[in-house]
Design a protein around this nucleic acid. Structure first.
Lengths: 107, 107
DNA sequence: GCAGCAGTTCGATAAACGTCGTACAATTAA
DNA sequence: TTAATTGTACGACGTTTATCGAACTGCTGC
């Protein structure tokens, strides 16, 4: 069965903000942004269990933040950057910039 | 007793995003942005009970999104726009613009 | 076929959340 | 002083959340 992805015009701001408000999920999104190549779930070094991972990827997908393509036994994840930019201009960039600034360790 | 407000450098991105991810709270923030005059809690037309209101204002305050000043029996609420812009440049604007766009009814 | 790998599904659990009503405190007005 | 106004504190409640482990499905390769 195909995974469900919300249409661009159906993206809800509170839902997206909630999806981005969890540290684990924020990490996923940042990695996807840093390297735009679609990546399997397993390639993210998550410090939670496999089933928790599945949960977080689903929250991101159902919020419309990521897209998941089935490839064999894997799910290739990519950011829905264009859709997000169309619906919420500047939001993703601001969130990513804020997350980067925060983690940019001072010398 | 004075109300507790987090310092600008202590603002956490996930906490702020979570504070903004609730429709009631988003409404509060939008009203504060539309009219930058500090306003009492009661002046927001909220469709929830008084105690729920108190809860939402506290979440916003503890996340560092709003400032509450005591004036008599009232709490004057204002956006911590400068602090937010310093810590998370562009974030608040992007959220507010997205919220505005969403509620801007098409013809 | 069989084993291994990638994720999902299914409870379960503990914590957090949004909501309410009632009671309370503190200020202001009569 | 009494009453009204503004908001808080305190449970209480049902829901959602983040987490886990164990069992499962579906592909890939030997």
């Amino acid at each position: 069965m195909g995974l469900h992805h919300p249409a661009t015009e159906d993206l809800e701001l509170p839902t997206v903000l909630h999806a981005l408000s969890d540290p684990q999920r924020l990490r996923i999104v940042r990695k996807l942004s840093a390297d735009p190549e679609p990546r399997a779930c397993g390639s993210f070094e998550m410090d939670v269990s496999k089933s928790t991972c599945t949960h977080h990827f689903r929250v991101l997908r159902e919020a419309g933040v990521i897209e998941q393509q089935v490839l064999g036994t894997s799910r290739l994840n990519s950011l829905r950057r264009e859709d997000l930019d169309e619906r919420f201009p500047g939001l993703l960039d601001a969130v990513l910039a804020s997350a980067d600034a925060k983690s940019a360790a001072p010398a």
